[in-house]
Design a binder for these strands. Structure first.
Length: 311
RNA sequence: GCCGAGAUAGCUCAGUCGGUAGAGCGAAGGACUGAAAAUCCUUGCGUCCCCAGUUCAAUUCUGGGUCUCGGCA
């Protein structure tokens, strides 16, 4: 059943300028921000995940930032649960949830839901990962040919997840994936996508990475490395790259270039993810657009009637 | 200035015993249902440095030139 409560999403690639826009947009919408970012949930990764500053978080209430330690495993299902709780709380206060971020899978988990699958089984994953992808794939073909059809023979992570689901529940993942339920259709939802020309996005990535290093990324990573990083926490862009430099595998300039390169790759993958989602209403940001100009444009979009077929 | 090595895809380079060429990286596009800032898939005509010669045919051989990098002065 649908009710008239509103939920606004503001998505887009890294470095497009979401955070600053969200900060000015939130008061106009009577909104609180729910971060949709797989890395900003990690408390100790301040610079590496490029979190909004404490000052920004004082001006507008932010949810789902700093919710776990980098030693903890986190995933899309956890995110979804927590985000749903935050959404309910915000609605209860008579306010509007503004979901802001660039983690496409987390957005999808919220919007479309996830199938009721088993939790990640770390021990099983460790065991499976010692096998060759080829063998795992052969196994998958045997127990779940439908899933095998959709998964690339080399895509070890997906093969492992499919096997994990089958081994722990006895039901093929392809069967379970048919049922899922998200919030799409249940609220008055608008999804705004922020975009910039690729070249400019890449320029902004350069600036952002240089700033992160300037703000003390190396020290932050050094301290992160004293902890037992979870599998997700250890993947934060910046961590493995700086680690290499600290180990003497290469110098800091090389690390800087690697971080920029990996961030560019990430931006590209984000765009691939978002582009295919036809629910997103895109807004191309011009080079000279100030934050307020962008905010005005978004308000303009939101005041228009939602596109056809949307109820 | 002399001696040597090299000049091939945006970059690093392989190769063609003479029949106009291919890897890695980058780049672009795509997939994505509990690791997602992860993981995976697809896409390679480029004056083979320039000029001349030999040849049916030269990027490949020969000669000359230009440039680059080493070493010696």
């Amino acid at each position: 059943m649908k009710n008239s409560l509103a939920v606004i999403f503001l998505v887009g690639p890294t470095a497009v300028g979401k955070s600053a826009v969200a900060l000015e947009l939130a008061p106009l919408l009577n909104a609180e921000i729910i971060s949709c970012d797989a890395m900003q949930v990690y408390r100790e990764a301040l610079i590496a995940s490029d979190k909004p500053s404490l000052e920004m978080r004082e001006r507008v209430k932010h949810h789902l930032i700093d919710v776990v330690s980098v030693e903890d495993e986190f995933n899309a299902a956890r995110y979804r649960e927590l985000a749903l709780v935050s959404m309910a709380q915000i609605h209860a206060r008579g306010r509007v949830p503004l979901v802001v971020g660039g983690s496409g899978m987390y957005m999808m988990a919220l919007l479309d839901g996830l199938f009721e699958g088993p939790e990640a089984d770390l021990q099983l994953r460790v065991r499976l990962s010692s096998h060759e992808a080829e063998d795992l794939y052969a196994e998958l073909k045997h127990v779940d040919p439908v899933a095998a059809e959709k998964i690339a023979p080399n895509d070890k992570k997906r093969i492992m997840r499919a096997l994990e689901v089958f081994e722990t529940t006895g039901v093929p993942i392809s069967e379970q994936q048919k049922k899922r339920e998200g919030i799409w259709g249940k609220y008055d939802i608008r999804v705004i996508g922020l975009e910039r020309p690729r070249e400019e996005l890449y320029r902004r990535v350069e600036v952002r990475v240089d700033e992160m290093l300037h703000r003390g990324l190396v020290d932050e990573v050094r301290s992160l490395l004293t902890k037992k990083l979870s599998s997700t926490g250890s993947k934060i862009i910046g961590v493995p790259e700086v680690k290499g430099a600290l180990n003497g595998a290469y110098d800091l300039d090389k690390a800087r270039e690697l971080i920029k390169l990996h961030t560019r790759h990430y931006v590209k993958r984000q765009m691939t993810w978002f582009r295919k989602d036809k629910r997103i209403e895109w807004l191309m940001i011009g080079q000279d657009d100030t934050v307020s100009v962008v905010v005005d444009k978004i308000m303009g979009l939101l005041n228009e009637v939602a596109p056809n077929g949307r109820t």
